[in-house]
Design a protein around this nucleic acid. Structure first.
Lengths: 340, 340
DNA sequence: TTGTACGCGTTATCAA
DNA sequence: TTGATAACGCGTACAA
C-alpha cells in the first residue's frame, strides 16, 4: 500500500516506447503489431500495472446514458428515481451524462419503440429501462443488440428475449420465503395463513407466491388461499373481511395495505401480519404491534444498482450477472426508523 | 443533467481573472482581497459551480492515512480489515495512500503512544484507531488535536476524551431492542428471558443490556438475569446449563456461542434464541431451527465507513457525526446465505 | 494581491 | 505501425 502505483508512463519508460502505443495495447485497439502488444502486456502485468479509473474518466469522451421513464410518475417510482439520481450524481464527476426520456404511455408498444429510437438517435452509450413494458418489442431489442447498445432493465424482462445486459429485480422468491419464516416464528403451530398479491400475471408476484407456499410446507403451516387485490384498496379490504375469520397469519406481498391496516389494529389482535415495504400505514401498524414485520424492497438500491452496473459495463467492461436480485431487508418495530 | 458542468475555467473566463485566484477564493486561502473573493464566490454560486472531485484528487498532493491495527490480529479483526482494505482499494485511484501501523500490545499505553508518535512523524493526514485501547492516552490525543490530525475511532472511545473526529460503533442499544422484540415475537407470552454478554465493563455490552432490558418491559417479558461469559466458551456453557431449565428465551449478545449451540439442538427444542453475528455455529443452528434469528453487526461496513468518513473530512471538509452507529441487520434462515 | 505554468494519469488526434 | 502532443479540471509553486 505504501509505494506508488505503476502508471502507463512507467511502462513506456521501461520499454522505451511512447504512451500512445501503450494505450493501444492495453485497450485491445488496432494498429499495433502483435509482438509489441505482447511485450507491453507482459511487462504491464509484471510491473503490476492497474489503470487509474479517475484519470481514465477525465481523459475519455463523455459517456451518455439514456434512461427511459414513465411520463406520469407513479408513486412508487419516486423511490426508484431517487436511486437513479443519486448514482448519476456520483458519476457526474466521472464524466458521465444522464439523459431522461419520458414515455407517454408505458403500455403502448409504439410509444416505447419511438422513445427507444429517439434514444438511439442521440447516440447514447447505454440504455436503462425502468417500467413494465409491452410485449411487441422484440424487434427493437434486436436492433439495440445489433448496434451494441447495452440495455439494463429494472423489473420485468419478458419482452426483451435475451437481448439485454442485465436486469435488476426484487428477490421475490426469497421475499416469499422470508415472509413464511417470519410467520412460522410468530404464529402458532399449524397456523392457517394466506397471501395477498397484486396480480398473478405479474412474474414477480408469482415468485413471491412460490417462495411463500413452498416454505409454508417446511414449516408446517397451512396455506388457505392466494388472493389478488389488483392493487385496489377496496378489493383488498373486502377480501380480507371475507377470510380474516379463519386466518392466523397473512403475508401482504404488495404495497396495498392501508385499508387492511385500519381494521387490523382493533378487530384482529391475534392475527400475525407480514407486510411489504414501509409506508405510513405499515409504520403505524408496526408501532402498534398490529403488524409483526415488513420486507423492505429497497427500490432506491435497485435504481442505483442499475445505473452502476450499466456504467461499469461501458467504462470498465465489467460484465454483470444477467439477473441481479436485491435481497429484501427485514423491518421490525425497533429498526423501523432506519428505513424512513 | 444534460448540459456540461461549470468549471473553474468558466468562472475565470466570465470574470476575466486567472485560475489561480479562483482557486484561492474557492478554498478559503489567504493572499486575496475580500472584494475579489466575494466576487468570485457569488458568481460561482450563480453559475452553479461544483468542484469536480475526480480532477481535484488528481491534482492535489497525496493524502496519507495511518491505520493503527493490533499486531496479533484476532479472529474478528479480519472482517474489519476487509472493510478497511476494500475502501482503501477504492480510494487508491483518488490519490490516497494507506499506511498500516501494527501495535504490539494493544493493552499497553506505552506501545500505543509510541505507535501514534511514529504515525505523526510520518506526517500522516489522518489516523484510524481500530482497537480497544488503554486509558492513559489523554496526552497524546491532545497532541493530535494540537497538530490538527483528525482521528477516527472504531469501537471504544473512553480514553480519547472528546478529542477525536468521529467514532464508528455498533448500534448496541438498538441491538438489545431488536433482540427483545424478536423474542417477543417468537416466544410465548410472559416468557422468562436472559442475556449473555462478554463483559459488563465493556460499554458496548452495557448498551446492549440496557436496550434489551428496557424493551423487555414494554413487551411484558421477564428478565431473569444478565450473565457474563468473558468470551469463554466453557464459562458460557456452564452458565447456560445452570439456567436453561427456567428459560424461555435467550439473547446471546456476544460471539461466544459455539458451545451453547452444540447442546441447543437436542436438549432445548422450545427455547427461543437470538444470536450475534454469523459464524459456522450460528449458521448451523439457524438452519436447524435451534436459533430463531441473529443480529449481524457488519464489521466490514464499520471498517469501510471509518475510512470513508476520515477521507471525506480531509479531502472534502465534510464533518461527520461524532458517533456513527451501524445498524445491525436481521438474519433469519431464509436470508442467511446473503451474510456469508 | 494576482497571474502563469506545470503536473496528476489517461485518452484522443494527428503527424511521422 | 509508432510517436508526439494536446486535452480533461484542478491544485500548487513561483513569478509578476
Amino acid at each position: 500500500m505504501d509505494q506508488k502505483r505503476v502508471t502507463v508512463k512507467d511502462i513506456a519508460a521501461k520499454l522505451g516506447v511512447s504512451l500512445g502505443i501503450i494505450n493501444k495495447a492495453l485497450n485491445d485497439k488496432g494498429g499495433i503489431s502483435d509482438e509489441m502488444r505482447e511485450r507491453i502486456l507482459t511487462t504491464a502485468r509484471e510491473m503490476g500495472y492497474r489503470v487509474n479509473k479517475v484519470a481514465q474518466s477525465m481523459a475519455r469522451n463523455t459517456i451518455v446514458l439514456g434512461v427511459l421513464v414513465p411520463a406520469q410518475e407513479k408513486d412508487y417510482f419516486s423511490f426508484l428515481k431517487k436511486g437513479l439520481d443519486k448514482e448519476f450524481e456520483r458519476l457526474a464527476d466521472y464524466n458521465v451524462q444522464c439523459r431522461y426520456y419520458p414515455i407517454e404511455n408505458t403500455y403502448s408498444a409504439a410509444d416505447t419503440i419511438e422513445t427507444l429510437k429517439a434514444c438511439m438517435n442521440d447516440k447514447v452509450h447505454g440504455i436503462l429501462l425502468c417500467e413494465y413494458f409491452p410485449s411487441e418489442l422484440e424487434k427493437i431489442f434486436e436492433e439495440l443488440e445489433a448496434q451494441k447498445i447495452p440495455t439494463v432493465l429494472i423489473g420485468d424482462t419478458e419482452s426483451a428475449g435475451n437481448r439485454y445486459l442485465s436486469s435488476i429485480q426484487v428477490d421475490a422468491y426469497r421475499s416469499g420465503q422470508m415472509a413464511a419464516e417470519m410467520l412460522h416464528l410468530c404464529a402458532k403451530k399449524n397456523a392457517s395463513v394466506s397471501i395477498f398479491v397484486g396480480n398473478k400475471d405479474h412474474v414477480e408476484h408469482m415468485q413471491k407466491i412460490r417462495g411463500f407456499t413452498e416454505s409454508l410446507k417446511e414449516y408446517g403451516l397451512h396455506p388457505i388461499g392466494v388472493y389478488e387485490t389488483y392493487d385496489d384498496e377496496e378489493i383488498a379490504l373486502q377480501l380480507f373481511r371475507k377470510i380474516s375469520g379463519r386466518l392466523d397469519g397473512l403475508y401482504v406481498a404488495t404495497s396495498t395495505f392501508a385499508s387492511i391496516g385500519k381494521v387490523l389494529q382493533n378487530e384482529h389482535p391475534d392475527l400475525k401480519v407480514i407486510c411489504t415495504d414501509v409506508d405510513g400505514a405499515v409504520a403505524a401498524c408496526l408501532k402498534a404491534g398490529a403488524v409483526q414485520a415488513s420486507l423492505f424492497q429497497d427500490l432506491e438500491k435497485q435504481g442505483s444498482t442499475a445505473v452502476r452496473v450499466l456504467y461499469e459495463y461501458i467504462a470498465e467492461k465489467k460484465t454483470p450477472e444477467k439477473t441481479i436480485c436485491i435481497t429484501p431487508r427485514l423491518v421490525i418495530e425497533s429498526n423501523l426508523d432506519t428505513f424512513i
